[in-house]
């Protein structure tokens, strides 16, 4: 702020930066532990307890995963599920939320309630599975894409974002003779970039975390990363040691590397999307 930097503002800034730095340190600290273990030998992990800087160094965990056919195919599956899934999500959600944001639309309240009601009540997995089966979608990514095509939560929140767009914009567009489609794509979407970027990220994360619907609907070779990861992290129940006696042992480095590699893609994507969070400035431009 070049206008005037008062003492109060400076104090305010110090408080803000202090708090943010403290919060970042707290967030970082356990993650550094995960990172440290991913480069450590098993012996160090077992003997040292909590630490942030490994004394040993090994890439064994990462190399193991990189050469693991299961990991690579899970990664491919996750990317497929996430990219296509998110495109479907964003297209359907944006259209629906925009439609529902029209205050003049008849039946809007009923439609909106139809969406909202699904947040509270659900039929459970068995009937959903039967629907998927009836549509012939089993063992196909479509089952995962379609059963989570729109999140009611995201649609409702996105609608409230669209409702914040000033009504004059719509009025002036209509006077220009633009139809609803042009209005949506030429004015509303560019204006709502922060919202759309946000929900893209939400959907990406949701798709990236696909676990249960993959287990329900997909085949062995279509399993995504989260299934792979969970199977590495799970500890078999000792009371059934007889049942699960394959004494298979993942090193801590391999387990933590899997966590790091699974989280990495979404951490890397964030800075790209973040650019769009600041596009709200355009609003002023349009108005002016």
């Amino acid at each position: 702020m070049r206008v005037r930097a008062s003492g109060a503002d400076r104090a305010f800034a110090i408080v803000v930066y202090g708090l943010v730095l403290a919060a970042s340190a707290l967030a970082l600290f356990p993650m550094l532990y995960v990172l440290a273990i991913s480069f450590s030998t098993e012996t160090e992990y077992l003997t040292r307890g909590f630490y942030l800087l490994p004394r040993t160094f090994t890439l064994e965990g990462y190399l193991y995963l990189m050469s693991h056919p299961g990991f690579m195919s899970a990664l491919r599956n996750s990317v497929t599920i996430s990219v296509v899934g998110t495109l479907i999500n964003i297209a359907l959600t944006t259209l629906m939320a925009y439609g529902l944001s029209k205050t003049w639309l008849r039946g809007r309240k009923t439609l909106h309630f139809i969406v909202f009601f699904t947040l509270l009540f659900s039929g459970g997995i068995i009937p959903t599975y039967l629907v998927v089966q009836a549509l012939g979608l089993l063992d196909s990514f479509w089952a995962v894409w379609l059963t989570s095509a729109v999140s009611a939560f995201n649609a409702i929140v996105m609608r409230s974002f669209f409702q914040a767009v000033p009504i004059e914009l719509e009025e002036s567009a209509r006077i220009d003779g633009s139809g609803e489609w042009r209005l949506l794509f030429n004015i509303i979407v560019p204006l709502s970039f922060p919202a759309i970027a946000t929900f893209t990220l939400f959907y990406l994360a949701q798709n990236w975390n696909t676990y249960f619907s993959a287990i329900l609907y997909l085949d062995n070779d279509q399993m995504p990363l989260q299934v792979f990861l969970k199977q590495m992290l799970v500890e078999d129940d000792p009371s059934i040691s007889n049942a699960s006696s394959v004494a298979y042992h993942y090193t801590p480095a391999a387990r933590m590397s899997a966590i790091v590699l699974t989280a990495l893609p979404l951490l890397l994507i964030f800075p790209f999307l973040q650019r769009y969070f600041n596009q709200g400035v355009m609003l002023g431009a349009v108005k002016g």
């Binding site: 056919p69 299961g70 062995n220 070779d221 399993m223 299934v227 590495m232 500890e235 394959v246």
Partner: peptide, 11 residues
């Protein structure tokens, strides 16, 4: 049922 490590990736 598969346990720690999971089943084989394909058949």
């Amino acid at each position: 049922a598969s346990w720690k490590g999971g089943g084989w990736p394909d058949n």
